[in-house]
Every structure is written in structure tokens, then in C-alpha cells.
Design a protein around this nucleic acid. Structure first.
Length: 347
DNA sequence: CATTGACCTGTCCTG
DNA sequence: GTGTCCAGGTCAATC
């Protein structure tokens, strides 16, 4: 029997103007987020925003708008959650009023929520122009690589996702994260026709429980089981309120945040930089993985070709080079080059 | 200090 | 069907 209760409440949806500065594919599937899935024959992206809202995003044919739909937006407790966009969007990001009969307050709220997650308050055209002027190689690549955005992501999810990423491949990372959500997260949306039940990412306090490590071992997490549990426990024990700690990390200078993060087991320089860039708004952070290492060797710092692998020294050198070349948003420039180098995005 | 292996596991690729 | 290598690193033990 089909339930009709949900259909009685209006679906929250609308359009967001992007000024051609957003490629969903290049942004959601370039290795910064691991939970976005392509549905409906490859037209719609479905994922979780702010760890509370199941959102479907669709790139419009005009290239200048995305359509959004909040799949679990009818829940009664919706506004009780502590979701507040951290940045006020620019005026041009206002939703259109094309779908009449809906609560404009809700529409505004959700378009702000999604714009914030996609960091649409940043004018990407200006950034691309600036980076292209300071680097011909970037300019050549960027013309075919528009709309790569650095997301503003949830702290805990970013932390544990990238702990999982060490010495690992994307396919397994995605599976492990999905397992974490199903086992320790809350149900956000039931019975999606293609994706099944969609869960939130677990609370840090949940991952700090003693049973977690042996359970994860059984689930095939390997040595990362201990990293995950011990990191969660460290945060709960030492910082009491994880949410507050992440805010402090965002406030303090990049180098200090990076240093503080590396005290967590399973968090080295690269993972710390990923968290700093993607969840703490430290856009000067340049995560250097083997991929970026190769880019640096071939495009910018040929003397590093003699290095077989990444050392602390070369790691620092590459980051500093990117910062000197691209400025305070170097991490974002790096994301564009990284994206261009991914196999799936090569022409 | 900078460098070098071991580390869990699923998968791809040979023989 | 077995064996091997490797994948978006980190840690700890040695130069």
C-alpha cells in the first residue's frame, strides 16, 4: 500500500542561480565528498547537506542554474536542528519564485543552506581570472575545467572520511563511509527508489564508544578501526564539545589548526590539510597527495622528479609554492588542477 | 632529523 | 583459481 501522507505536504524545491560558476559533477565527484550519488539515469545528484538534509541537485541545461529538492524537508522537527548557514549569500543567489504556492520562508532558508554548502558566496570567475593571470599553465587548464568548487563540509564527516582515505582507494573509501553511516548514523530518508535508506554521518560521541573498534575490524576497516575510535575518543575526552572545538579550529590560524589536528591518531599532514581546507575554511591549505605531487613534479618543480616519494620537506615546499603562486585561496586552485588531472575528467 | 617499511583489505592483473 | 601489486597516508623504528 502506498502511503500518501508525505505527499500532502509540499515538497521543498526551487532554483539557485550559479552564474555558470558551478559544475556539479566536477564538484561533487572529485574526491572531496564521498557520499554524492548520481541517480535518475545520470541527471540528478543525491546527497546529504549539513548532515541533516537529503538533497537532490540537478544542473539545468542553461548552465546557469541548479534545481534543488529537499527530499526530507517535510519532517516536523526540521527547524529544530541547529542548522544555520554560516555565510549570508549574495543577493544574486536568491531563489526564483517559479514554484508558486510554497512557503517562501522555507525556500529562502533552503536555498541559503545549499548555497552555503556549495560556497556560492565566492565569486569563482574572479578567482579563475586571478589564477590564470598569475599562471599560464593554470589558464590553459582552467578553460576546460570551469565550475570546480571547494565545498563547505561538516567537520566530523570530513575528519573520519579522510582518516579512511589513507593508503586506500576511492571505491573502498566510499563503501567504508557508507557502512559507518548505516551502522552508527540516523535515518534521514527512507526508501529512496535507487539508493534505499539514507543515513546521517555518525556523531563523534557514538564513534567514541568502546564497541566501535572491534566492530569496525569485523567490517573490514583494518588498522583504521583504531584510528577512528581513538580519534573520536580523544576529541570527546579532551575537548568535551566537538562542535565547539571545530569552531575553534576554524578560528585559529591555519598552521595552528593543522598542528592541532595532527595530534589525532590517523591524522597526518595530508589528512589534516584536507580537513582544514574542506571543513574549516582554511583555503590556503594545500593537501598534497601522490596525485598533486606528480602535478607539481611535472608542471612546476621539475627538480622534485628525483624524489621517489613525498617527504616532509617536499610536502612543505609544494604547499608553499602553491601559496606563493595562487595566494590565500591556493587550496582551491589546487583543487582545480587536481580535478583536471583525474582520469574521469580528462577529455 | 630525514628515510624506510609495515600496515588492513578489496581489486585488478598475470600466469 | 592463486599470487601480486597497488590504492588520494600514517606511524614508528632507524639512520
Amino acid at each position: 500500500m502506498r502511503q500518501t501522507v508525505k505527499a500532502l505536504k509540499p515538497m521543498i524545491e526551487g532554483f539557485i542561480e550559479t552564474n555558470g560558476e558551478l559544475s556539479l559533477k566536477r564538484t561533487l565527484k572529485s574526491g572531496q565528498a564521498f557520499r554524492w550519488r548520481l541517480t535518475n539515469d545520470g541527471t540528478d545528484w543525491v546527497g546529504v547537506v549539513r548532515n541533516t538534509h537529503v538533497v537532490q541537485l540537478t544542473q539545468q541545461p542553461d548552465g546557469k542554474h541548479i534545481h534543488y529538492r529537499v527530499l526530507n524537508g517535510h519532517e516536523d522537527n526540521d527547524h529544530n536542528q541547529e542548522i544555520k548557514p554560516t555565510v549570508k549569500g549574495r543577493k544574486r543567489l536568491k531563489t526564483s519564485d517559479e514554484s508558486d504556492g510554497e512557503n517562501p520562508k522555507d525556500q529562502y532558508f533552503y536555498s541559503q543552506l545549499i548555497s552555503d554548502y556549495l560556497r556560492l558566496d565566492v565569486n569563482l570567475t574572479d578567482l579563475y581570472d586571478k589564477w590564470s593571470k598569475s599562471d599560464d599553465k593554470f589558464a590553459a587548464i582552467a578553460v576546460n575545467m570551469s565550475g570546480v568548487r571547494v565545498l563547505r563540509q561538516n567537520f566530523a564527516e570530513t575528519l573520519f572520511s579522510f582518516i579512511c582515505s589513507s593508503n586506500n582507494n576511492i571505491n573502498r573509501i566510499e563503501k567504508m563511509i557508507e557502512t559507518l553511516c548505516q551502522k552508527y548514523g540516523k535515518v534521514l530518508y527512507e526508501s529512496h527508489p535507487e539508493l534505499g535508506t539514507i543515513h546521517s554521518f555518525p556523531e563523534i560521541t557514538r564513534l567514541a564508544e568502546e564497541s566501535v573498534e572491534p566492530e569496525l575490524k569485523k567490517l573490514g576497516f583494518g588498522y583504521r578501526s583504531a584510528f577512528i575510535h581513538r580519534s573520536a575518543k580523544t576529541i570527546c575526552d579532551e575537548y568535551k564539545c566537538p562542535e565547539k572545538w571545530s569552531q575553534e579550529l576554524a578560528q585559529m590560524p591555519y598552521s595552528e589548526a593543522r598542528q592541532a589536528l595532527q595530534r589525532l591518531p590517523g591524522v597526518g599532514p595530508k589528512v589534516a590539510d584536507c580537513i582544514a581546507l574542506m571543513a574549516l575554511n582554511h583555503l590556503e591549505s594545500v593537501p598534497v597527495d601522490v596525485h598533486v605531487f606528480k602535478i607539481a613534479q611535472h608542471m612546476y618543480l621539475p627538480h622534485l622528479k628525483k624524489n621517489k616519494s613525498l617527504t616532509h620537506k617536499s610536502y612543505q615546499e609544494i604547499g608553499d609554492f602553491f601559496r606563493s603562486k595562487f595566494g590565500p585561496n591556493a587550496g582551491w586552485a589546487q583543487a582545480v588542477l587536481f580535478c583536471a588531472d583525474l582520469k574521469q575528467f580528462k577529455q
